[in-house]
Simulated scan of single mutants.
Amino acid sequence: MTYMIHGATGAQGAPVVAALIAAGKPVTALTSKAGAVVDGARVLTVDYSSTADLADAYRGAEGVFVHLPVAPEEDRLAFARNVVAAIREARPARVVFSTSGGLIGTDGDSGQDTPAANAVSVLAAGLADSGVSHAVIEPRFYLENLLLPNVIAGVREEGVLRYSLPSGFRASWASHLDIADIATVMFDRTDVTGVVSVGQYPAVSGEDLAEAFSARLGRPVAYEATDPHAFFAPLAPMMGEQAATDIADMYQALSTQPDHSITAERSAQKRLGLTPRTPSQWLADIDL
């Protein structure tokens, strides 16, 4: 029996593959990239567009790590439905789903498969209704976003950390490395079900992030808030116009909220006894 990891060659899946291999687990890397090679893992070319292919991959698996790719929401909804159908058919031993920053029921829906439902809620509700052992990892923002070319260049060349959140706005940031650590534990902790929120608690501001960069680089770094649509426009060729617009709209809406913090009760700190890396620890771990 093996662990099936979606996006195994990407930013989210690759750390999960590495963490499981380090723990001595057998891993099958699921990727849409034909001919991909992943050290220490069997590679299977599968994407989210075929329920039959997904079911074939999941059948007999010890665990499945799922996250939805960056894509227009209509496509993500189709992917979510396909994953749920495949899980119901194949019935792997355990599923761990990362919302990749999406929130369960963020549109006020119940998570049921209705036109108003978002893909994250549809997948989470489908897992809950599947009868398969599962848990949901719910991060807020990824620290790796700060390594985007239009962000890290400003830090290195100008001493300015630019990001699309207001000054003073506090959020629960986490690293892909944290998600990998938590996913590895959650595959074994079958007693943990439902949603586990992952990120800094108390939440931190852009100014706090800039301070961590300052300490790491040994020179001043200031925080500067930018307009979300201006921030994500240069990334449209990489993620697609519609996806870039959707993400910018999400950030715009979040900026009207008091913060974007996890709650203590369903945090990884409370539910698993695991504390995510601080921004300073993360910078040291990636050896920036």
Rank of each mutant, 00 (worst) to 15 (best):
5 I>S: 06
9 T>L: 05
20 L>C: 11
20 L>H: 07
20 L>A: 09
23 A>I: 06
26 P>C: 01
28 T>A: 09
35 G>A: 09
39 D>T: 14
40 G>E: 04
43 V>Y: 04
43 V>I: 09
46 V>G: 00
50 S>G: 05
50 S>D: 09
52 A>H: 05
54 L>R: 08
57 A>G: 04
58 Y>F: 15
61 A>T: 04
61 A>C: 07
63 G>W: 02
63 G>N: 06
65 F>T: 08
68 L>Y: 02
77 L>I: 14
80 A>G: 06
81 R>N: 03
84 V>I: 06
86 A>C: 02
87 I>F: 03
89 E>F: 09
92 P>S: 07
94 R>D: 08
94 R>M: 07
95 V>N: 00
95 V>D: 08
97 F>V: 11
97 F>C: 04
108 G>N: 07
109 D>V: 11
115 P>R: 01
115 P>N: 06
120 V>I: 14
123 L>W: 01
124 A>F: 08
125 A>D: 12
130 S>A: 11
134 H>S: 14
139 P>Q: 01
140 R>D: 03
142 Y>G: 08
144 E>T: 08
144 E>A: 07
151 V>Q: 06
152 I>R: 09
152 I>G: 06
156 R>G: 10
157 E>R: 14
160 V>I: 09
162 R>V: 07
166 P>D: 03
169 F>L: 06
170 R>F: 07
181 D>Y: 08
186 M>C: 15
186 M>G: 06
186 M>E: 13
187 F>K: 10
191 D>H: 05
194 G>R: 01
195 V>M: 10
203 A>H: 10
205 S>W: 07
206 G>C: 04
211 E>P: 04
214 S>G: 08
215 A>L: 14
216 R>Y: 06
216 R>V: 11
217 L>W: 04
219 R>K: 15
221 V>G: 02
224 E>N: 05
225 A>E: 13
227 D>L: 09
228 P>G: 01
233 A>E: 15
238 M>L: 14
240 G>F: 03
249 D>W: 07
249 D>H: 09
257 Q>H: 13
266 R>N: 15
267 S>D: 09
277 R>V: 02
279 P>G: 05
280 S>Q: 08
281 Q>S: 05
284 A>Q: 11
285 D>T: 11
285 D>F: 07
285 D>E: 12
